[in-house]
């Protein structure tokens, strides 16, 4: 069974582990690094709940083979606040503004889709500080939520975007 030494920087920390070639990034993150915030939903690229960042780009961990992201920087939901804090040295953040907005706007019910939604939404806000409703819908179109009806989620992204602009 082919395996190799995998080197990743996960949430700012270098990680090295031996992994079988067929391991997905989702298996590495959840089963080997025990970061369970990244969810294992459909495992087929359809639901978006396994979204994390690979070198800053939101990607689906379930359809990404770990070996193909050798030496990349991974940010998962557990590391998002840390990433945000680093961008804003003054602000020792416990939460990324979008995480706070999700809580305030009631954008979380069962919570299963939330980490993926937040990782997708945070990347959108990083690249597009004041997104239109259509841009938010497009960016989050790969994320399924079976509880909220999406309205509160869209409002949370808008609210976080406004707050981030005000504080910038």
């Amino acid at each position: 069974m082919p395996e190799s030494v995998l080197r990743l920087i996960v949430n700012g920390r270098p990680q090295q582990l031996v992994a079988a070639d067929e391991m997905t990034l989702l298996e590495v993150v959840r089963d080997r690094l025990h970061l369970h915030g990244t969810k294992d939903g459909c495992a087929a690229g359809s639901c978006g709940s396994c979204t994390l960042w690979v070198d800053g780009v939101p990607r689906l961990a379930c359809v990404t083979l770990a070996k193909t992201v050798q030496d990349c920087e991974i940010v998962t939901i557990e590391g998002l606040a840390g990433w945000w804090g680093k961008q804003h040295a003054a602000d020792a953040a416990e939460l990324h503004p979008l995480q706070a907005a999700f809580a305030e706007q009631g954008a979380v019910q069962c919570g299963f889709c939330t980490p993926g939604m937040v990782m997708g939404g945070a990347a959108l806000l990083r690249d597009t500080p004041s997104p239109s409703r259509a841009q938010i819908q497009e960016a989050l179109s790969g994320h399924l939520c079976r509880c909220t009806g999406y309205e509160q989620i869209i409002r949370a992204v808008q609210a976080a975007g406004r707050r981030m602009l005000d504080e910038a």
């Binding site: 070639d21 067929e22 391991m23 298996e27 294992d40 495992a43 379930c62 083979l65 070996k67």
Partner: peptide, 12 residues
């Protein structure tokens, strides 16, 4: 998720 069956990943 269902683990993939063993295979090699080659990165030329």
């Amino acid at each position: 998720m269902m683990p993939l069956r063993p295979l090699a990943v080659v990165t030329p």
